[in-house]
């Protein structure tokens, strides 16, 4: 108890986002996403992008988030290009570059879509950067999620590095045997087989071993000790109820808009 108390004190000194539970963070991401789909005004969208960006910057930036942003910015740029030129609603010219005219309607549509994408990336990025696999696992089990489902979700995060390690070994062995890079699509697909077959057999073999080990250790036993959550979270139920209510209202509004269009 003392140990946990000390750990909580240590955590409390660390970061503000440690007192927000993982489910609240995910619900917040869902709420911001749904709100961005409810709004159609670009200024509001920009406001939401700013809010989610601040949320992300107040936590910490990871390389994965930066990769996701750079990939999406490229796609948003192609969206502006395609929609600005070819959107069926295009009527009012916005700008002409080298005799190519971009239209207001298409560019606005692409920017709105782009803003929504950024809101999703920033809000999910906030969740990603502020929670750990073990924190999520213990929290989900403590709130009543069946342990085999928790295991399913969390074990992926631990198994991936193991598979990547196997892949490197097999690729190294194949290179040592002198497999050359292929040129045509069929050749490339064929060259995958000598790597994929041993990798997949080894991966499934390891999962059989894991399954036997879990069975021997009584994975299916109904008597289990649930681990205590890692942090002391702030007003979890209140935040869950509030965010779920807001999400229901937003979904209701969207459905009402769709129904109204048919009436």
């Amino acid at each position: 108890m003392d140990i946990r108390h000390n750990r909580l004190q240590k955590v409390a000194r660390l970061h503000w986002y440690n007192v927000v539970d993982p489910v609240t963070k995910l619900l917040l991401a869902l709420f911001l996403t749904l709100l961005s789909f409810q709004l159609t005004d670009l200024y509001f969208e920009a406001g939401l992008v700013l809010i989610s960006l601040i949320l992300l910057l107040l936590s910490r930036l990871s390389v994965a988030t930066l990769h996701a942003v750079s990939f999406s910015l490229f796609l948003i740029a192609t969206m502006i290009l395609i929609q600005g030129l070819f959107n069926s609603q295009n009527a009012h010219p916005l700008v002409t570059i080298l005799s190519i005219t971009f239209y207001q309607e298409g560019v606005l549509y692409a920017l709105t879509m782009g803003a929504r994408i950024l809101i999703i990336i920033f809000s999910i990025g906030f969740f990603m950067n502020t929670t750990t696999v073990s924190e999520n696992a213990t929290y989900l089990e403590s709130v009543g999620m069946p342990y085999n489902q928790v295991y399913l979700l969390m074990s992926v995060c631990y198994i991936l590095p193991q598979i990547q390690q196997n892949l490197k070994k097999i690729q190294f062995a194949e290179k040592a045997r002198g497999i050359n890079p292929q040129k045509t699509l069929i050749q490339k697909l064929r060259s995958l087989l000598p790597i994929m077959i041993p990798l997949i057999i080894k991966t499934f073999d390891q999962s059989i071993n894991r399954s036997i080990t879990l069975q021997l250790r009584g994975f299916n036993s109904p008597e289990r000790t649930i681990a205590a959550p890692m942090y002391h979270y702030f007003k979890t139920k209140l935040s869950h109820y509030f965010l779920v209510l807001m999400i229901i209202i937003l979904i209701g509004c969207k459905l009402w808009q769709i129904i109204k269009n048919f009436l």
Partner: peptide, 14 residues
């Protein structure tokens, strides 16, 4: 089952 529970993460990894 336990077997499926361990197969699924492996499939995700693949």
């Amino acid at each position: 089952t336990v077997a499926t529970t361990t197969l699924i993460p492996a499939a995700v990894g693949i």
